[in-house]
Every structure is written in C-alpha cells, then in structure tokens.
Computed example of a mutant assay.
Amino acid sequence: MSFEDLVVLLIFFRIYALGVTLSIASTKVLNALLLRDNYAKSHGLSLNTSRFVIILATSLIARNVTTFADPKAFIGLAILHLSRQIFKTSNHKILLPAVFLFGTIVMLICNSITQVTTSEYTLSY
C-alpha cells in the first residue's frame, strides 16, 4: 500500500467517522421528530438546526460510501427499510446499530457471491 493510498484511506475514515458520530449523536433528535414537529419543539429542539445536522451526517456517509465503495453501495438504502421491517421498530437507538450490523452482513454476503461467481477457479461441467 502506497503513501497516497494511506492518505486517501485516512481522509475517508475521518469523514466517515464524523458522519457516524453525528448520526449517533442525533438519535434522541430523530426519536423526537418521529412524534411530529410540535413534540420536538416542546422539548426545546431547534428544528432547522436538527434537520441540518441529520442531512449533513447522511450526506457525509452516503458521499463517502459511494465515492470509495462504488455506486453499488447504495444497497444501504434498502437495508434501512429491511431493518425496520425485521426489527419492527422505529426507535433509532435500536435501529441505527441494527442497520450497521445488518448492512455489513448483507454486503459481506454480496461480496462473497461476487467473488465466487467471478473466480477463475469456478467449477465447470
């Protein structure tokens, strides 16, 4: 691995870590927003600031994943909806770690299938 690859990886990791940190810090805000704007306002949340932070975190993660992992990484959009149906919850304290784990598992399975089917050592009859 060259020095340039390490620099790119370090940049990727820092931006991704910032996005994940903002996401984790926003779980209470996301749960409050599930109960509508008036509920969130009554708890003293600034809706514009909260929405900006949530959009920023989502954009950072999506940009990094798409840039470094290829556009196929948008499978994460489906993972969120599948996780909500599997875990039957909208609570972000449960859903956020579930999406990270479930997404990792699905991507590893997809990667394994791709490597097996494109290997030059596949069985032929």
Rank of each mutant, 00 (worst) to 15 (best):
72 K>V: 13
49 T>N: 03
99 V>M: 14
35 L>Y: 12
8 V>F: 13
18 L>F: 05
94 I>V: 05
105 I>E: 05
77 L>N: 07
121 Y>C: 00
16 Y>R: 01
36 R>S: 15
87 F>V: 09
98 A>Q: 11
84 R>D: 03
78 A>I: 07
33 L>D: 08
99 V>N: 09
66 T>D: 03
79 I>V: 13
45 L>Q: 01
68 F>K: 06
24 I>S: 02
23 S>D: 02
41 K>L: 05
16 Y>C: 00
84 R>E: 04
45 L>D: 01
11 I>W: 04
107 M>K: 02
15 I>P: 01
59 S>M: 14
106 V>K: 03
96 L>H: 12
29 V>R: 05
53 V>N: 01
124 S>C: 02
114 T>W: 15
59 S>D: 05
115 Q>N: 12
111 N>W: 11
98 A>G: 12
87 F>G: 04
124 S>L: 05
40 A>I: 13
18 L>N: 02
101 L>R: 01
5 D>F: 08
106 V>C: 11
113 I>L: 12
88 K>G: 03
108 L>E: 06
95 L>V: 00
103 G>S: 10
33 L>I: 09
34 L>Q: 12
45 L>M: 10
20 V>D: 03
33 L>P: 03
64 N>G: 14
40 A>T: 04
32 A>P: 04
70 D>N: 13
97 P>M: 08
93 K>T: 08
118 T>F: 09
91 N>M: 03
33 L>W: 07
59 S>W: 07
13 F>W: 04
36 R>W: 04
10 L>T: 02
57 A>I: 10
58 T>S: 08
79 I>M: 14
46 S>Y: 06
53 V>F: 08
12 F>I: 00
83 S>V: 13
90 S>F: 13
121 Y>Q: 00
19 G>D: 10
89 T>M: 08
103 G>Q: 09
20 V>I: 12
119 S>P: 11
40 A>F: 04
37 D>E: 13
109 I>D: 07
3 F>T: 15
4 E>K: 09
14 R>V: 05
94 I>T: 00
